[in-house]
Design a protein around this nucleic acid. Structure first.
Lengths: 179, 179
DNA sequence: AACAGGTGTTTTACCTGTAAAAGATAGCTG
DNA sequence: CAGCTATCTTTTACAGGTAAAACACCTGTT
């Protein structure tokens, strides 16, 4: 039970999180460690997936946040303001400013000022920008498909569904809880 | 369908990820967006949960990485070297060094050199360190329980199980895929 | 018209993480 | 035992994010 070297054992106890949970149980018996089994795993999956995920992006010299920004422009299909991009990519305005600076220098996006309201800028993909997104996306998705293929199709569907429910609820209520 | 303001609609389409997927489908019809529905959601859930999760920690003036480090010491129950801590918390050695510096200054951990091998250090919790972990952990878990309660018990179990399977596979194979 | 307050964006100062190199030490090998 | 290589940890240089302040500009009010 006390997994000697940190090596994994069977199905439900095969990840590092369950080993951590076992350790906590030994130190604080009876502790309700239920949340860890979800939150701990979500965090760890996110970390591992991002690491793996970045491989195809790196080849194009893009970080994931940069790709997210370009992707937002591509999938909406129209110009977005820096503020829109911040909302769309869930990052701060300041972060968007910095990324836009670099992406503009690399010629992947262009900006123009609004004619009516001179505070706002409109950002759009250049041809090079659109090409790079369209080139990477399929590779990216293929790579992700390969990574996820460790789970059979049915489980992938279940997982996607459950995560969607959780995320929908969190997005709706988190503001409420935080207040 | 094109959700006007970014507001969510029904059950399976209620999160931002499904809105993003719909946008991609409109631009690249037929694209296999399956992976996004898992990976995108995992990433976004992780981001939201961490944000929410930190609330009880902040009251104790700890960041999550700091708490993870202290937690590793607490749950293993014995001294760990910086290298052990890096492995245990999935962070780089350099990051551990920095965190240890701060935690030592705050009197939450102590270090002593190894007598045999003078390269290695051994880190342990001080009484104050142990108390802070034991004080926060229940609050932390209670908070997480509340956040997750948007999902009923059965779904939480299913989700934990699926994530465990995925994580177990990823931890086992990711090294292999990366090679 | 002047201004008060609000909004969109950028700047500043700072904090934390990383990769790569440096530093220090162990332990094998000829 | 001198030297080589491997290991553990820290340092350095730097990239990238954030919060808060600063800017620039709009808009409704008086």
């Amino acid at each position: 039970m006390t997994a000697p070297n940190g090596r994994q054992a069977d199905a439900t106890g095969g990840d590092t999180v369950s080993a951590v949970v076992r350790q906590w149980q030994a130190v604080h018996p009876g502790l309700d460690t239920g949340p860890m089994e979800i939150i701990g795993r979500v965090n760890r999956c996110a970390a591992l997936l991002q690491q793996a995920e970045d491989a195809p992006l790196r080849r194009a010299g893009l970080s994931r946040p940069e790709f997210d920004l370009l992707g937002a422009l591509r999938r909406t299909g129209h110009e977005l303001t820096p503020g829109d991009l911040a909302r769309e990519t869930f990052s701060s305005g300041a972060a968007v400013t910095k990324r836009l600076k670099q992406l503009t220098e690399r010629g992947l996006v262009e900006r123009r000022g609004d004619t009516r309201d001179r505070r706002v800028a409109h950002v759009r993909l250049t041809d090079a920008g659109r090409e790079i997104v369209d080139g990477i996306l399929p590779e990216q998705l293929a790579y992700e498909t390969a990574v996820l293929s460790v789970l059979d199709q049915r489980r992938q569907g279940e997982l996607a569904g459950l995560l969607g429910e959780l995320l929908g609820q969190l997005e709706g209520r988190l503001g409420a809880l935080r207040a």
